[in-house]
Amino acid sequence: MYKSALIGLLSMLAAMALPQAAQAEYADVVMNNYSDAAGMRPVVFPHWYHRIRFRCKVCHADLGFKFKAGGNKITMAKIIDGQFCGACHNGEISWSVENCGMCHSGIAGTPTQIHGSTVQRLVAPTYKKLGK
């Protein structure tokens, strides 16, 4: 009797102590189109940090960022060329691309996503996963 109660209590405690789902900031974008395959940490883009400094228009109208996580197919070559992130992260408006770990700071294996989105919170998946 006491033993089963103890086991139950222990298992409850264990379940509480297990790592919880990500609690990242709303609208943090993880981009992992190519990072994992290239042996880099995926990129985490904090929307909140950027919207304090720039309005949506700057990136989404002037720089041509699409409203889709991972939909811009950004590569380091394009960034060094001054496109996408490279329009500001060039050492003039903001720090330059040699600070790899500032963007490539995600946990390896995290899929491309916009964290905390409504689609993520829906009970049933809204799309079929692409085949291998």
Binding site: Q20, Q23, A24, E25, V30, R41, V44, Y49, S105, G106
Partner: peptide, 23 residues
Amino acid sequence: NLPPAEDGIHDADNDNTHVLQPP
């Protein structure tokens, strides 16, 4: 509004994660 190192998406083993501003 957890700091980056504890939010479950940023890698705490990455030195630069701790440089990022907590929201």
